[in-house]
Design a protein around this nucleic acid. Sequence first.
DNA 1: TCCGATTAAATCGTATACGATTTATGTGAA
DNA 2: TTCACATAAATCGTATACGATTTAATCGGA
Lengths: 156, 156
Amino acid sequence: MGVSAPTVAYPKLADFMCFAIYSTNLAYGRAYRPILEELGVTYTQWIAIVALWEEDNQTVGSLGEKLFLESNTLTPILKKLETLGFLRRGRDPKDERQVIISLTDAGRALREKGAQRTLVKASGLNQDEFRALQRSITTLRDNLVRHATNDNENSL
Amino acid sequence: MGVSAPTVAYPKLADFMCFAIYSTNLAYGRAYRPILEELGVTYTQWIAIVALWEEDNQTVGSLGEKLFLESNTLTPILKKLETLGFLRRGRDPKDERQVIISLTDAGRALREKGAQRTLVKASGLNQDEFRALQRSITTLRDNLVRHATNDNENSL
DNA sequence: TCCGATTAAATCGTATACGATTTATGTGAA
DNA sequence: TTCACATAAATCGTATACGATTTAATCGGA
């Protein structure tokens, strides 16, 4: 009885979806590192550039929604990218609470430089598998976000 | 020519597999937080406990292989878990370079307490979809690891 | 046996994440 | 008009990740 050797069949680490995601995220970080090193930015800095290329002159909040990050994480990253010369930060004159982020020429050039570099081949999947997998993961993410937003009313 | 508005059709953030994984990892962290708060540990601390339950008395290196982490990340986490009373750390008398990690009774009790809590329902997937997705992600991860290990010989 | 190479963990510096709080600004109803 | 409330960023403290280095122990060939 009680605590002793693993006699009960608890799920193993390899059975956890969260661990599959977690470890794949680590693997992506490592696979991307050499590419990003060439560009001179980190992973999070890079996705911020990509999101700004898609839509420039966003507020910190709007950018955060797209990156699933809040100002406490984003602000230091944006400040860093500003000192690196890739973007500008300025208060919105219409609403001084908000900060508008805009890419500089250097930031746009960086986006173009990095555009060619992706890791599709490293995934070992064909295009159909790749797309299907991506859709499934996105669905999973959106379900999790919805779950968390609902203040997870005990439905685990 | 050159840098200007996004006239070229570069892939969007939503098209990046790495971003799907990255954002899902953030979502999992948030979804699990309330559960882990009850247990009094963080996510990484928890997966260390799970891995040790599966195989107790592992070295830091062996544990790191399973968690995809190295000693620079793992050591502080294990020290923290030691001060929390969930495990013990001790040098291997056979090879003083190695540190053996063993769960305490409190650590095993924690594993049992947390065993009931998973987020399968929150994923919004049925059991077959869930398993298939997990297998695909794991394959992706292993391919990425292999790619990185091969010192990524320019095959992006 | 002895000493250079190897190995395992730990240490250090930098960059995320994030809960909680703070600061600055805007808004609306009394 | 004004003041309590709301909102947007920023700040702060804690906990990961990880490259690079350091420390300590082991190994192996001359």
